[in-house]
Protein backbone atom coordinates (compact mmCIF):
# COMPACT_ATOMS: atom_id res chain seq x y z
CA UNK A 1 0.00 0.00 0.00
CA UNK A 2 1.24 3.44 -0.76
CA UNK A 3 0.20 6.93 0.21
CA UNK A 4 -1.34 7.80 -3.12
CA UNK A 5 -3.60 4.77 -3.05
CA UNK A 6 -4.54 5.25 0.60
CA UNK A 7 -5.47 8.84 -0.14
CA UNK A 8 -7.63 7.82 -3.08
CA UNK A 9 -9.35 5.13 -1.05
CA UNK A 10 -9.94 7.50 1.86
CA UNK A 11 -11.39 10.04 -0.54
CA UNK A 12 -13.73 7.48 -2.02
CA UNK A 13 -14.93 6.28 1.37
CA UNK A 14 -15.43 9.83 2.60
CA UNK A 15 -17.40 10.58 -0.53
CA UNK A 16 -19.61 7.56 0.10
CA UNK A 17 -20.34 8.67 3.65
CA UNK A 18 -21.09 12.21 2.51
CA UNK A 19 -23.45 10.87 -0.11
CA UNK A 20 -25.22 8.78 2.50
CA UNK A 21 -25.59 11.84 4.72
CA UNK A 22 -27.10 13.84 1.87
CA UNK A 23 -29.51 11.02 1.12
CA UNK A 24 -30.57 10.86 4.75
CA UNK A 25 -31.49 14.56 4.45
CA UNK A 26 -33.45 13.88 1.29
CA UNK A 27 -35.27 10.94 2.87
CA UNK A 28 -36.14 12.93 5.95
CA UNK A 29 -37.14 16.04 4.00
CA UNK A 30 -39.19 14.01 1.54
CA UNK A 31 -41.31 12.45 4.22
CA UNK A 32 -42.04 15.70 6.03
CA UNK A 33 -42.82 17.57 2.81
CA UNK A 34 -45.71 15.24 2.07
CA UNK A 35 -49.12 16.78 2.76
CA UNK A 36 -50.57 15.96 6.16
CA UNK A 37 -48.46 14.50 8.90
CA UNK A 38 -48.08 11.36 10.88
CA UNK A 39 -50.52 12.43 13.57
CA UNK A 40 -53.14 13.10 10.95
CA UNK A 41 -52.67 9.77 9.30
CA UNK A 42 -52.79 7.88 12.59
CA UNK A 43 -55.97 9.51 13.81
CA UNK A 44 -57.68 9.80 10.44
CA UNK A 45 -59.92 12.52 8.97
CA UNK A 46 -62.35 12.63 11.87
CA UNK A 47 -59.80 13.44 14.54
CA UNK A 48 -60.47 16.41 16.82
CA UNK A 49 -57.95 19.28 16.80
CA UNK A 50 -57.17 18.62 20.46
CA UNK A 51 -56.34 14.98 19.87
CA UNK A 52 -54.12 15.98 16.92
CA UNK A 53 -52.30 18.57 19.00
CA UNK A 54 -51.75 16.07 21.81
CA UNK A 55 -50.39 13.43 19.51
CA UNK A 56 -48.15 15.95 17.76
CA UNK A 57 -46.68 17.00 21.06
CA UNK A 58 -46.22 13.37 22.04
CA UNK A 59 -44.38 12.59 18.78
CA UNK A 60 -42.32 15.84 19.03
CA UNK A 61 -43.75 16.93 15.68
CA UNK A 62 -43.81 20.55 16.80
CA UNK A 63 -40.04 20.72 17.14
CA UNK A 64 -38.16 22.52 14.33
CA UNK A 65 -37.36 20.12 11.42
CA UNK A 66 -33.61 20.51 11.90
CA UNK A 67 -33.81 19.33 15.48
CA UNK A 68 -36.05 16.41 14.56
CA UNK A 69 -33.63 15.42 11.76
CA UNK A 70 -30.62 15.44 14.01
CA UNK A 71 -32.26 13.39 16.73
CA UNK A 72 -33.62 10.95 14.13
CA UNK A 73 -30.23 10.55 12.50
CA UNK A 74 -28.36 10.14 15.78
CA UNK A 75 -30.78 7.45 16.87
CA UNK A 76 -30.65 5.74 13.49
CA UNK A 77 -26.86 5.60 13.55
CA UNK A 78 -27.12 3.78 16.88
CA UNK A 79 -29.57 1.29 15.37
CA UNK A 80 -32.70 2.83 16.86
CA UNK A 81 -35.27 3.59 14.20
CA UNK A 82 -38.09 4.21 16.67
CA UNK A 83 -41.35 2.32 16.73
CA UNK A 84 -43.74 1.62 13.90
CA UNK A 85 -46.80 3.85 14.13
CA UNK A 86 -49.22 1.21 12.92
CA UNK A 87 -48.18 -1.73 15.06
CA UNK A 88 -46.18 -0.07 17.81
CA UNK A 89 -43.38 -2.60 17.24
CA UNK A 90 -39.73 -1.72 17.47
CA UNK A 91 -38.68 -1.05 13.85
CA UNK A 92 -35.06 -2.13 14.22
CA UNK A 93 -36.12 -5.53 15.49
CA UNK A 94 -38.68 -6.18 12.76
CA UNK A 95 -36.32 -4.81 10.15
CA UNK A 96 -33.47 -6.99 11.40
CA UNK A 97 -35.28 -10.23 10.64
CA UNK A 98 -36.52 -8.92 7.31
CA UNK A 99 -33.11 -7.65 6.28
CA UNK A 100 -31.54 -10.95 7.22
CA UNK A 101 -34.00 -12.77 5.01
CA UNK A 102 -33.48 -10.42 2.11
CA UNK A 103 -29.71 -10.65 2.34
CA UNK A 104 -29.98 -14.42 2.64
CA UNK A 105 -31.96 -14.57 -0.61
CA UNK A 106 -29.70 -12.05 -2.35
CA UNK A 107 -26.58 -13.88 -1.22
CA UNK A 108 -27.63 -17.21 -2.64
CA UNK A 109 -28.90 -15.62 -5.84
CA UNK A 110 -25.50 -13.93 -6.22
CA UNK A 111 -23.67 -17.18 -5.48
CA UNK A 112 -25.50 -18.72 -8.41
CA UNK A 113 -25.61 -15.75 -10.76
CA UNK A 114 -22.17 -14.10 -10.51
CA UNK A 115 -19.92 -17.08 -11.32
CA UNK A 116 -22.38 -18.23 -13.96
CA UNK A 117 -22.42 -14.78 -15.57
CA UNK A 118 -18.62 -14.56 -15.62
CA UNK A 119 -18.32 -18.07 -16.99
CA UNK A 120 -20.91 -17.48 -19.70
CA UNK A 121 -19.34 -14.12 -20.57
CA UNK A 122 -15.92 -15.70 -21.02
CA UNK A 123 -17.48 -18.55 -22.99
CA UNK A 124 -19.25 -16.03 -25.25
CA UNK A 125 -15.95 -14.28 -25.92
CA UNK A 126 -14.23 -17.59 -26.65
CA UNK A 127 -16.89 -18.47 -29.22
CA UNK A 128 -17.55 -14.94 -30.39
CA UNK A 129 -20.05 -14.77 -33.26
CA UNK A 130 -20.43 -18.54 -33.25
CA UNK A 131 -23.51 -20.39 -32.08
CA UNK A 132 -22.61 -20.64 -28.35
CA UNK A 133 -22.20 -16.84 -28.22
CA UNK A 134 -25.47 -16.25 -30.02
CA UNK A 135 -27.35 -18.79 -27.89
CA UNK A 136 -26.02 -17.31 -24.62
CA UNK A 137 -26.87 -13.78 -25.74
CA UNK A 138 -30.33 -14.71 -26.98
CA UNK A 139 -31.34 -16.61 -23.85
CA UNK A 140 -29.98 -14.03 -21.44
CA UNK A 141 -31.54 -11.14 -23.35
CA UNK A 142 -34.87 -12.95 -23.44
CA UNK A 143 -34.72 -13.54 -19.70
CA UNK A 144 -34.00 -9.88 -19.00
CA UNK A 145 -36.79 -8.77 -21.33
CA UNK A 146 -39.54 -10.85 -19.76
CA UNK A 147 -41.01 -9.22 -16.65
CA UNK A 148 -39.71 -10.99 -13.57
CA UNK A 149 -43.13 -11.71 -12.11
CA UNK A 150 -44.04 -13.55 -15.31
CA UNK A 151 -40.91 -15.70 -15.07
CA UNK A 152 -41.85 -16.27 -11.44
CA UNK A 153 -45.37 -17.45 -12.26
CA UNK A 154 -44.19 -19.58 -15.20
CA UNK A 155 -41.68 -21.31 -12.91
CA UNK A 156 -44.29 -21.78 -10.22
CA UNK A 157 -46.66 -23.32 -12.74
CA UNK A 158 -44.18 -25.75 -14.28
CA UNK A 159 -41.64 -26.48 -11.57
CA UNK A 160 -43.76 -26.17 -8.44
CA UNK A 161 -47.23 -27.17 -9.58
CA UNK A 162 -46.63 -29.60 -12.45
CA UNK A 163 -43.31 -31.18 -11.48
CA UNK A 164 -43.60 -30.45 -7.75
CA UNK A 165 -39.82 -30.19 -7.34
CA UNK A 166 -39.81 -27.09 -5.20
CA UNK A 167 -42.44 -25.31 -3.11
CA UNK A 168 -44.19 -22.36 -4.73
CA UNK A 169 -44.25 -20.34 -1.53
CA UNK A 170 -40.88 -19.35 -0.17
CA UNK A 171 -41.65 -19.17 3.54
CA UNK A 172 -38.66 -19.57 5.78
CA UNK A 173 -38.20 -19.40 9.52
CA UNK A 174 -35.41 -19.84 12.02
CA UNK A 175 -36.28 -23.43 12.80
CA UNK A 176 -35.45 -24.64 9.32
CA UNK A 177 -32.09 -26.15 8.44
CA UNK A 178 -30.00 -24.51 5.75
CA UNK A 179 -30.97 -27.20 3.28
CA UNK A 180 -34.67 -26.72 3.98
CA UNK A 181 -34.29 -23.00 3.59
CA UNK A 182 -32.47 -23.35 0.28
CA UNK A 183 -35.10 -25.76 -0.91
CA UNK A 184 -37.73 -23.20 -0.02
CA UNK A 185 -36.09 -20.34 -1.83
CA UNK A 186 -34.89 -22.30 -4.87
CA UNK A 187 -37.44 -20.76 -7.20
CA UNK A 188 -36.92 -17.12 -6.20
CA UNK A 189 -33.17 -17.71 -6.52
CA UNK A 190 -33.71 -19.04 -10.03
CA UNK A 191 -35.82 -16.05 -11.05
CA UNK A 192 -33.43 -13.50 -9.57
CA UNK A 193 -30.44 -15.18 -11.14
CA UNK A 194 -32.13 -15.10 -14.53
CA UNK A 195 -32.95 -11.42 -14.12
CA UNK A 196 -29.45 -10.24 -13.17
CA UNK A 197 -27.51 -12.78 -15.24
CA UNK A 198 -27.93 -11.09 -18.59
CA UNK A 199 -26.66 -7.69 -17.50
CA UNK A 200 -23.53 -9.08 -15.88
CA UNK A 201 -22.90 -11.54 -18.70
CA UNK A 202 -23.19 -8.86 -21.37
CA UNK A 203 -20.87 -6.55 -19.48
CA UNK A 204 -18.29 -9.30 -18.96
CA UNK A 205 -18.41 -10.08 -22.65
CA UNK A 206 -18.15 -6.43 -23.71
CA UNK A 207 -15.37 -5.58 -21.25
CA UNK A 208 -13.27 -8.57 -22.24
CA UNK A 209 -13.85 -7.98 -25.95
CA UNK A 210 -12.74 -4.40 -25.47
CA UNK A 211 -9.53 -5.58 -23.84
CA UNK A 212 -9.08 -8.19 -26.58
CA UNK A 213 -8.27 -5.38 -29.02
CA UNK A 214 -5.10 -4.58 -27.05
CA UNK A 215 -1.63 -5.21 -28.38
CA UNK A 216 -0.77 -7.34 -25.36
CA UNK A 217 -3.47 -9.80 -26.35
CA UNK A 218 -1.73 -10.18 -29.69
CA UNK A 219 1.52 -10.76 -27.79
CA UNK A 220 -0.19 -13.47 -25.78
CA UNK A 221 -1.57 -15.11 -28.92
CA UNK A 222 1.87 -15.00 -30.49
CA UNK A 223 3.23 -16.81 -27.43
CA UNK A 224 1.20 -19.78 -28.59
CA UNK A 225 -1.26 -19.68 -25.71
CA UNK A 226 -4.68 -21.17 -26.36
CA UNK A 227 -7.80 -19.03 -26.46
CA UNK A 228 -8.90 -19.67 -22.87
CA UNK A 229 -5.40 -18.99 -21.50
CA UNK A 230 -5.41 -15.70 -23.38
CA UNK A 231 -8.85 -14.66 -22.20
CA UNK A 232 -8.49 -15.83 -18.63
CA UNK A 233 -4.83 -14.98 -18.09
CA UNK A 234 -4.48 -11.73 -20.02
CA UNK A 235 -7.85 -10.20 -20.88
CA UNK A 236 -9.83 -10.88 -17.71
CA UNK A 237 -7.43 -9.20 -15.20
CA UNK A 238 -7.69 -5.99 -17.22
CA UNK A 239 -11.46 -6.17 -17.53
CA UNK A 240 -12.12 -6.53 -13.81
CA UNK A 241 -13.02 -2.91 -13.08
CA UNK A 242 -16.05 -2.60 -15.39
CA UNK A 243 -17.18 -6.12 -14.53
CA UNK A 244 -17.06 -5.53 -10.78
CA UNK A 245 -18.97 -2.33 -11.31
CA UNK A 246 -21.89 -4.02 -12.99
CA UNK A 247 -21.75 -6.97 -10.60
CA UNK A 248 -22.10 -4.60 -7.65
CA UNK A 249 -24.97 -2.76 -9.28
CA UNK A 250 -26.74 -6.07 -9.69
CA UNK A 251 -25.99 -7.15 -6.14
CA UNK A 252 -27.53 -3.90 -4.97
CA UNK A 253 -30.53 -4.66 -7.12
CA UNK A 254 -30.77 -8.08 -5.52
CA UNK A 255 -31.10 -6.43 -2.10
CA UNK A 256 -33.26 -3.43 -2.83
CA UNK A 257 -35.11 -4.36 -5.98
CA UNK A 258 -36.68 -7.66 -5.15
CA UNK A 259 -40.08 -6.34 -4.05
CA UNK A 260 -41.92 -8.01 -6.91
CA UNK A 261 -40.24 -11.36 -6.37
CA UNK A 262 -40.91 -11.25 -2.64
CA UNK A 263 -44.57 -10.58 -3.32
CA UNK A 264 -44.83 -13.33 -5.93
CA UNK A 265 -43.25 -15.92 -3.65
CA UNK A 266 -44.65 -14.49 -0.41
CA UNK A 267 -41.12 -14.16 0.94
CA UNK A 268 -40.76 -12.32 4.26
CA UNK A 269 -38.13 -9.83 3.14
CA UNK A 270 -37.52 -6.09 3.23
CA UNK A 271 -39.41 -5.34 0.07
CA UNK A 272 -42.70 -6.64 1.30
CA UNK A 273 -42.22 -4.90 4.62
CA UNK A 274 -41.60 -1.61 2.88
CA UNK A 275 -44.59 -1.93 0.54
CA UNK A 276 -46.89 -2.77 3.44
CA UNK A 277 -45.87 0.29 5.39
CA UNK A 278 -45.86 2.70 2.47
CA UNK A 279 -49.50 1.92 1.92
CA UNK A 280 -50.19 2.58 5.60
CA UNK A 281 -48.14 5.80 5.57
CA UNK A 282 -46.00 4.53 8.40
CA UNK A 283 -43.34 7.22 8.02
CA UNK A 284 -40.66 5.98 10.47
CA UNK A 285 -40.63 2.56 8.81
CA UNK A 286 -40.38 4.06 5.32
CA UNK A 287 -37.53 6.28 6.48
CA UNK A 288 -35.69 3.35 8.01
CA UNK A 289 -36.10 1.22 4.90
CA UNK A 290 -35.01 4.08 2.66
CA UNK A 291 -31.90 4.65 4.72
CA UNK A 292 -30.94 0.99 4.68
CA UNK A 293 -31.51 0.65 0.95
CA UNK A 294 -29.43 3.76 0.31
CA UNK A 295 -26.66 2.42 2.55
CA UNK A 296 -26.62 -0.89 0.68
CA UNK A 297 -26.53 0.83 -2.71
CA UNK A 298 -23.84 3.28 -1.78
CA UNK A 299 -21.82 0.66 0.07
CA UNK A 300 -21.78 -1.81 -2.80
CA UNK A 301 -20.93 0.85 -5.37
CA UNK A 302 -18.18 2.07 -3.09
CA UNK A 303 -16.78 -1.47 -2.98
CA UNK A 304 -16.87 -1.55 -6.77
CA UNK A 305 -14.88 1.66 -6.98
CA UNK A 306 -12.40 0.45 -4.39
CA UNK A 307 -11.88 -2.79 -6.32
CA UNK A 308 -11.36 -0.75 -9.49
CA UNK A 309 -8.74 1.34 -7.72
CA UNK A 310 -7.03 -1.73 -6.33
CA UNK A 311 -7.14 -3.49 -9.71
CA UNK A 312 -5.13 -0.72 -11.32
CA UNK A 313 -1.49 -1.78 -11.19
CA UNK A 314 -0.36 1.81 -11.75
CA UNK A 315 -1.96 2.81 -8.47
CA UNK A 316 -0.97 -0.33 -6.60
CA UNK A 317 2.66 -0.19 -7.67
CA UNK A 318 3.73 3.39 -8.32
CA UNK A 319 7.01 4.12 -10.05
Amino acid sequence: MNNMLIRLLAQRIALGLLLLLIISVVIFAGTILLPGDVAQSILGQSATPEALANLRAELSLNDPPMQRYVSWLLAAVQGDFGTALTSGQDIAQALGTRLRNTVFLAFWAAVVAVPLALFLGILAVRFKDLWPDKLISAVSLASISIPEFLIGYVLIYFVAVKLQWFPSVAMINDNMSLFEKLNAIALPIAVLALVVLAHMMRMTRAAILNVMQSAYIETAELKGLNALQVIYGHAFPNAIAPIVNVVMLNLAYLVVGVVVIEVVFVYPGMGQYLVDHVSKRDVPVVQACGLIFAAVYIGLNMIADIVALLANPRLRHPK
Partner: peptide, 22 residues
Protein backbone atom coordinates in the same frame (compact mmCIF):
# COMPACT_ATOMS: atom_id res chain seq x y z
CA UNK B 1 0.55 -22.82 -31.16
CA UNK B 2 3.69 -24.83 -30.56
CA UNK B 3 5.37 -22.86 -33.34
CA UNK B 4 4.41 -19.48 -31.89
CA UNK B 5 6.48 -18.64 -28.90
CA UNK B 6 8.34 -21.92 -29.26
CA UNK B 7 10.16 -21.81 -32.58
CA UNK B 8 9.30 -18.28 -33.69
CA UNK B 9 8.71 -15.30 -31.45
CA UNK B 10 7.81 -11.69 -31.97
CA UNK B 11 9.04 -8.29 -30.77
CA UNK B 12 6.58 -5.53 -31.49
CA UNK B 13 7.06 -1.84 -32.11
CA UNK B 14 5.41 -0.72 -28.91
CA UNK B 15 6.55 -2.74 -25.93
CA UNK B 16 4.52 -0.39 -23.76
CA UNK B 17 1.33 -1.62 -25.42
CA UNK B 18 2.49 -5.19 -25.85
CA UNK B 19 3.11 -5.89 -22.19
CA UNK B 20 0.05 -6.69 -20.13
CA UNK B 21 -0.21 -3.83 -17.60
CA UNK B 22 -1.71 -6.10 -14.96
Amino acid sequence: RALRGGEVSYVSQSAAASFNPA
